[in-house]
Structure formats: structure tokens, C-alpha cells
Design a protein around this nucleic acid. Structure first.
Lengths: 223, 223, 223, 223
DNA sequence: AATGAATGAGACTTCATTCAT
DNA sequence: CATGAATGAAGTCTCATTCAT
């Protein structure tokens, strides 16, 4: 049984008390779940605690305010995402094109690219106040990824002797594609999936760096 | 003074009553203004009517519910946007590359690509309920633009004899770039402007269709 | 065409202006209709004027306040009722039992005993404030009918030599039966109709005054 | 002091929290009180909670909606009434006339036949929407009492060998008298009291079943 | 006589937060 | 650690009444 909310002690009974960390994560998971179900605005302290099977007072005890709970939820997603593409990047083989592709794929890996998580991201983008939280918490990570991608592009350009290509501009375009495709997945989930997103980005890279990327083969899925 | 809310009659006094159409537009403008200031959630009937200098009851009289006011606001923006790129498309010269570029430019023209308007769009993307309104009101326009762009790409591909390029996939990528770059303008207005957006897209098109688009010259603005 | 609201002038057009009296009656009729449809509370100046096909301002012009419109509506019903049983009483033949029966029948005549009218009566009974209006407007009529009935009973008792019967007590009981049966018609219209009401009252009178009233014959309708 | 709202703990201070049941009853009592004072329509969540000395939010916490609070109030009165006449019926001696009289008396016992309670009943009768609640909650009880009374009348008729009397019709008339007399108590409290009501009903029964009921003696009170 | 846009007080309801237990 | 009854501010919506036209 993997669900943290169902942890049972040796007596088979749910423990009345649990560690700080476990409770916090329980509440953050419930927050994501609730935002997915009811939207950012539709999510109240009550929907979160009901989802978690915990009491109102407890949520307040651990997070003090709703705003804080929401920020911690965003922080959790941001860190999860950060770790995920960083690990992908590191595990990829040494070629810069492999590392760049790893970052792209991380963005659309099922662990990260879930509707319920994207819902939270775009909930934060949509609200002025939440946007401020976003910048505070995520700007650095965005910048880190941007610079890493730009560096990889620079390596690829140098290796391939590509002309007229600015690595930072490519990185910027990639960042735009990530966001734009996530939005399309959110709004038109039937017509546009994470597979479309990955293919479109690979095509873009294959167009720019023909020696390093090849066009995705479309046999089974014309998209 | 162009502001409809300040229309004065010949006596120089603000008229107590105004036509239905004028009042509705006044309230829609105030809604955009308020969403820009306080966000979609932060916008209440009170912030809207205060912004418009009108009474609460009047907003209800003209729009019945807040939900309806918001949908009419989105509809107004959608129609404005629609008309704008459609006119740009029609006014452009006959070459398909000119027409495609006109659509791109329309997306980032100052009339359309205003922070306060983008805020409204992303407000609607962020809320599950609002997203449903968006689909109802805007899906058709999105589809129309997608098909138009794909057709233009097909013409360009035929003319230029480009290989290995699927016009629909290009159109899909363009749609993603529009959304992604709008989001970057919203979140990082200092670092990313509508000029960056247009240049990145022109570069993308120049990479794909070198005979039809040329790389934007960066002398004055390295971006 | 009997409906005052559809009165047409010689041009076949509805006159923009009409006599005070006609407009007032139009609005009173609309009030009764609206109370029947939406209840006393559910009736607003808007539902009334919509029903009448007239404007809000006009209702205000003729009745000043909602409270006044409601009172005039009650007054109209009270007077209609008053006239109706009074005429029935006068038209009946000279025998006191005939006159008493005429009063009973008037109470449950289809002109008077309509669900939509009873709804108005009980709307007034149900509200403390409206009850005050009721007393002001109707108490005298109620008293007049009570005394008239008592007098008729006295005549019947004298004629028949009935023992142990107090005419005022009978009149009191009759008044109670009118109200109680109206309520049953209002609440249980399927199970209890004006026919049940009239039969039960006739039975009551036949029990008291066997020489003057006979049991209603139940052949076709066991009730 | 018997008032549940003033319950003090051992410290002499009013407890901040109380059991669900206590709070609910407190609010129901306050609702009755408020309807008596201001009418059904005049009763707002504010008048109720002010009467109860509790906060608005709490009423919502316990009853969710005003409609629900009102229905629970009616249910409380209906059950109280039901229990009251049922117990009276059971406690009366075995003779059917004793049992029937017990039901009549229960209807006009001071516990039940209070102006403030009757006000609530007629409030519900007066509003279309409330009438629907009434039927839902009280129709069964009304039917039960009707059938019980009819059965008692049948026994009386059989015992006394009375001719030409239909027990169901008598029960129907009794139900009408209850309602009509309650209304008279509500509207003309000076002129018509519960004593008048009980005497009139006893006279009616004495007229029908002379062997089983005797005329109420009027020495002290000519009514 | 007649219209209907406009107002503003007040209704119901929601919900983040508090706090006695 | 944990609960959940309690508060009160704020939101949306209703509606009698007013008044310029």
C-alpha cells in the first residue's frame, strides 16, 4: 500500500498522529487533487481537508494560511519538476543533443505532464497574486533551465557548425513551446496530447540541427 | 477624451441614463481593467462597478450574473482578436507568406497584445469552470485560425518545394508558440516582450521556409 | 374579447393610454395571477407588471407602493366576495334556510372559490403584516356575514322549535368550516374539492335543523 | 431558567461550544420566535440568529440553507403535534368517544395551540413553496389522524346505532374545523379563543352523537 | 400617462481563520 | 497533535423605489 494517507500501524489502525512531514505531504497531495477537481478558486480549506480525510484545524496547524498551503503546493510541484528534468539531464549520455532531448522529454513525461498538475500550474498563471508567488518560487528554476538549454545549444551549434543560429533564442523558443503545448494539453486534451507536443518539438530541433536530430517517424501515428 | 464612460451631453453633465450598448461596453471595459488589477478571482462585482463608476444593481440589470458578465467579456476579447487577425490577413498582399506573417503580427500587435488583455485570457485558462466557457466561445475561432494557417503553409510548401514539412504540424507549432509567448510576456514582462515573440517566430519560419522568410535583422535590438 | 388588457381602439392598436380605472384593474388582476403563480413572497413588482404587460413605473404611478397594491388587491377580492354572497342572499327566496344555503353556496361558487384567489387569501393570513391589512379591510365584512347568518339561524330555530341550539354558535361554526375547507382545497386539491365542502356543510346543517335541510343525496358521488 | 441558550457551565460562563443537538434546537426555537414576530417572509437568517444570540455562520453550519432551517422547524412542530395527540389518544380511556375527545382537546391544548406556533403553520400554508414542504412533511400525519378519527366515529356509530352518518365525512368535517378555528384564533384572538373552538366542536359532536357526547355547559362562559 | 435605466439597502450564502476542548 | 464548532467579513444577487426622458 503506497498511499501515505492509508498508512496503518501494526495494529491495523490508522495512527491518530503522524509525522509532520507525512501530514504535510498528505495535505499537499490533497490540494493538488482538489485543484484538479474544483479549480484554484473552487478549492477551499474544506475541500482540501475533506480530500485528505483530515480536520480543518490540522491544515491550519501545518500551513497557517491557505495562501501558504498553496505556495507550498506550488513549491512541491516546482521542485519535483526541477529534480525530474535535472536527473533526466544527468542520466542522459554525454552528447549535448541527448541531454537537450532529455530535458524536452522530462517536460512531457507522464509523471510531470499530468492534467491535474498542469491545472495547478495554470491556476497560478491565471491569478495576479498567484503569479507573484510563482515568480518568487520558480523564476530561478526557469532561468537555470534556460541557461542550461542555451549552453547545450551552443555546444551543438559549435559541433555542427550551424550558421545564423543564436543558442539563447533557441532556448527561448523551447521555453515558449513547453508552455504553449502544456496549455493546449490542458484546453484541448482530446486533440492535443503530450505525444503531439514531443513530436512538434523534435521536428523543430531537427529543422534547426539536422545533423543532430532526426525527424520523428510518423508511421503509426500521423498525429 | 475617448472614454465612453465620460461621455457628456450638451449640458456638460454626465447623463444619468445611457443606451444599453454603451453601458454594457462600459462594464465590459471595467471588467477587463479589474481583472488586470485584481485577477479573475480577485475581481468582484464591486471592483467592476467601482471601476466603471456605476452601481452594483446596474451591472446585474445588464448582465444578470457575474458569470454572464465574464463570458461576455471573454466573448468581446475573442471577437476583437478574431476580427483583428482576419482583417490583417485580408489586407496583406496575396503572397501566402505575407498573409501568414500578418496573422503572426496581429497576435502581437499592441492593440491585442496588452498585458491587461492577456491577463484576462490566462485568467480563463486557469479556472476549470472558466475553461469550459473558453472552449464554448473560442474553440471555433482557434480552429479557424489553425486551418487557415495550415492552408497558407501548404501553399508555401508547394511553391518552395520544401520537403519533409507537414503544414498542419507547422500550424500546430505556431499555435503553441502564440500561447507560450503570451504567457512569457505575462510572467516575465521585463525579460520577454512582444518583440521577442515576433522575432522568435520569424526565425522559426525562416528556418523552415528559407526562400519565403528571412531572418530578422538584430542590429538595433539583440533582444 | 373580454380581457381588459387587450382592449383595442378603432385603429386596432392597443391604446398607449387607458383610463385610470382600467389600468388599476389590469394591475390588480395581474397581481392575483402572479401571487397564484409565484406566491405572495415570490411576487415582485416585476412579475406583476410583466404579467400585466405594463411598465414598472406605471404600477408605481397608480399604486405608489407594493404594499398598497397588495392591499388594493385584497380589497378587490373582499368586495367581490362580499357582493357575491350578498346578492346570492338577496336573490334567494324568503325562507331563512334558503338564504343561509345561498350564503354557503356563494362561498364555494366557482367564481369565488378559485385556487388562485384562495392562494391570495391565505397569503394574507400567513404574514403578520398582511394579517393587519386583512383585519383592517375585511373584519367588518366578516362580522356582517356572521351576524346575518346568526339572524337566519335564529329564525330557523324559532320556526322549527329546535332546542339547545345557539344561533351565534352555529354561525361561528359555519365561519370556521368556510375557512377550514378553503384551506383543505388549497392544500389537498386532489382529495378535497368545493363539492366536498358544500356537502359537509349541508350535512352539518341537516343534522342541526332536520326540518329545514335534508341530507345531500350521495348517489353518483360518494365523495 | 429553562432556556437552553442560557445553559451555563460550572464556571458560570456560557460555553463557547455546545452539542449539535442543543444548537439545532436553539435555532429552531429562535426560528419559531422570529416567525411569530416578523412573519415567515419577514424572518431572515439575521432575525433568527439575533433571536438565538448566535452568529449567522453558525446557522448555516448547522442547517446549510434557510429553506432547510424552515423545513426542520416545521418538522419539529409537526412531530411535536403528532406525538401530542397520539399520546393523548393512547392515555384516554378505552371508550371511542373518550379517545376522539382526546384528539380534539390535544389540538387546542395550550402546549400546541399557541399563537406563535399557529403563526408558523399558517406561514407555511400561505406560500406556494412552503406549501410543498408542508405536504412533504405533514401529509402522512394528517392522513393518519383522519383515518384514526374515522375509525373512532365508526365505532361510535355502531355502538349508538346512529343512522345516516358517514364516519369519514365526520372526520373530514372535524379536520376542517381544526383548521378553520386555528385560523380564527390567529386572526381574531380577542373574539375567538381555544375555548370557543373546543366548545363548538363538542357541540357539533353532541349534535351528531347525543348518546355519547353531551352539550358543553355554558354557565360561566356564554362564549 | 408612461417608460425603463438606475440606485442601494439588504437578503442569503461562503469560507478563511480562530480557539476551547 | 488533533478536532470541529464558531465567527464575521465579504461576495453575489434581488428588488422596491426613484426619476430623467
Amino acid at each position: 500500500m503506497n498511499d501515505v494517507s492509508k498508512v496503518a500501524n501494526s495494529n491495523g489502525k490508522q495512527p491518530r498522529t503522524a509525522s509532520k512531514k507525512v501530514r504535510r505531504q498528505q495535505l499537499i497531495d490533497a490540494t493538488i487533487e482538489s485543484i484538479a477537481k474544483y479549480g484554484l478558486t473552487g478549492t477551499t480549506m474544506t475541500t482540501v481537508t475533506r480530500e485528505a480525510g483530515l480536520s480543518l484545524g490540522l491544515a491550519n496547524f501545518h500551513f497557517s494560511t491557505k495562501q501558504n498551503l498553496f505556495e507550498e503546493t506550488l513549491r512541491y510541484l516546482a521542485e519535483e519538476h526541477h529534480q525530474f528534468w535535472k536527473e533526466s539531464y544527468e542520466k542522459a549520455n554525454l552528447a549535448p543533443e541527448a541531454k537537450l532531448e532529455a530535458i524536452v522529454d522530462a517536460h512531457f513525461h507522464p509523471t510531470i505532464c499530468k492534467r491535474k498538475k498542469i491545472t495547478v500550474w495554470y491556476g497560478f498563471f491565471g491569478e495576479a497574486k498567484a503569479r507573484a508567488s510563482y515568480r518568487k518560487l520558480v523564476a530561478d528554476i526557469d532561468a537555470e533551465r534556460f541557461h542550461l538549454s542555451a549552453r547545450l545549444c551552443r555546444d551543438i551549434i559549435r559541433e555542427g557548425g550551424y550558421k545564423n543560429i543564436d543558442p539563447e533564442n533557441v532556448a527561448m523558443t523551447l521555453e515558449g513551446l513547453y508552455d504553449g503545448f502544456w496549455l493546449n494539453i490542458l484546453i484541448y486534451p482530446r486533440e492535443f496530447t503530450r505525444f503531439h507536443a514531443m513530436r512538434r518539438i523534435k521536428e523543430y530541433l531537427a529543422g534547426l540541427f539536422p545533423e543532430h536530430f532526426e525527424y520523428p517517424q510518423p508511421p503509426d501515428c500521423k498525429d
